[in-house]
């Protein structure tokens, strides 16, 4: 049984970490970008961002004043049990979100879409989102919080098989160029691409590809991995950099996730994470241990499973 108090305490720590500490994989990616950048203004922007990460950590203040829209991904091992059940967990995550919005402080971004009511705590109707995943073995819970920016850099398009890879590249470039101008996408960022599913699944996969995979990670399908490399390079050959200034770094990495779709279609979504790439992860065990990390490791072999059954002898491979 996993203690609900421990879950809430851990969730509160994660809220702070996500807002304040730039994840190592993204930091290394941005440092490499800063080294290669020769655009005069783009270079200045990247060095200012690197300084900003240091200031945030030293002062324990948020990296960015725009908190985005904090959300939760919960992954449970098949044997995990929560003190109070899933309803208690959801209450704990909502409390953690509200408490640390005030505590860090974060910007209370979440308002009613029509009446603009602001509870000043980032909690409201359907907010924060809580999404779930499961793994075949384990009595732990992974808590992941992502504070992704909310307004620009994301788009969806219904493509068809006849559009092919050329059509994928076109829509990818269209998104980067359109949202890259004036830096609306807060680039250079991790770009997530969803392919297939339905419209909703496609958006979910693309967002998770941007927010739940780390820089340098590759899709296990070698042809998709090759496309990830190709698209990363394509994005960085536009001639645009940070803030839409002349430069060569638009993309820190490109991640693709796929889902089986209607035989006539090839849905595509593009999602830009941002210069603050706010994500934080902890695994909470039933014996009270908590392990913090920055790699969500969401897309396991089990999450990407392709067959009807999940045979017991493959459980080990999923760990």
């Amino acid at each position: 049984m996993i203690s609900i108090d421990l879950l809430q305490k851990t969730a509160e720590t994660l809220m702070d970490k996500a807002a304040i500490e730039i994840p190592d994989d993204y930091l290394a990616g941005l440092q490499a970008a800063a080294k290669s950048e020769d655009g005069e203004l783009s270079s200045f922007v990247l060095s200012a961002m690197l300084e900003n990460y240091e200031a945030a950590k030293q002062d324990r203040r948020a990296m960015c004043g725009d908190t985005g829209t904090p959300r939760w991904y919960v992954k449970m091992g098949n044997e995990a049990q929560i003190d109070g059940g899933p309803v208690a967990l959801e209450a704990a995550l909502r409390r953690a979100t509200a408490n640390r919005t005030d505590g860090v402080p974060l910007r209370p971004n979440r308002v009613h879409p029509l009446w603009r009511t602001d509870h000043n705590n980032n909690v409201g109707i359907n907010a924060p989102e809580i999404e779930y995943g499961f793994e075949p073995a384990g009595s732990w819970i992974d808590l992941i919080t992502v504070h992704k920016g909310g307004l620009f850099g994301t788009d969806y398009r219904m493509l068809f098989p006849s559009d092919g890879i050329k059509g994928i590249k076109r829509f990818y470039l269209d998104c980067l160029v359109a949202f890259g101008k004036r830096g609306l996408a807060c680039q250079p960022a991790i770009i997530g691409i969803g392919l297939g599913g339905g419209k909703d699944t496609c958006m979910v996969l693309g967002k998770r590809a941007a927010c739940l995979r780390v820089v340098g990670d590759r899709n296990p399908d070698p042809r998709i991995a090759e496309l990830e490399d190709e698209l990363k390079e394509l994005g960085n050959s536009i001639g645009m950099g940070a803030m839409g200034f002349v430069g060569k770094n638009m993309v820190i990495d490109t991640n693709i996730e796929v889902g089986f779709c209607h035989t006539g279609g090839m849905q595509m979504s593009v999602h830009a994470f941002c210069l603050s790439s706010r994500r934080a992860v902890a695994r909470v065990y039933d014996d009270g241990r908590v392990e913090y990390r920055t790699d969500p490791n969401w897309f396991t072999a089990y999450q990407r499973r392709e067959t009807v059954e999940w045979p017991a002898d493959t459980i080990e491979a999923s760990q």
């Binding site: 200045f44 922007v45 200012a48 961002m49 300084e51 900003n52 990460y53 200031a55 945030a56 002062d59 203040r61 948020a62 990296m63 960015c64 004043g65 725009d66 830096g183 807060c186 940070a242 803030m243 941002c274 210069l275 603050s276």
Partner: peptide, 14 residues
């Protein structure tokens, strides 16, 4: 005047 990044929230906070 444009902010930089975006955004250098911690630097501006200082």
């Amino acid at each position: 005047l444009s902010t930089v990044g975006y955004g250098t929230g911690a630097l501006l906070g200082r």
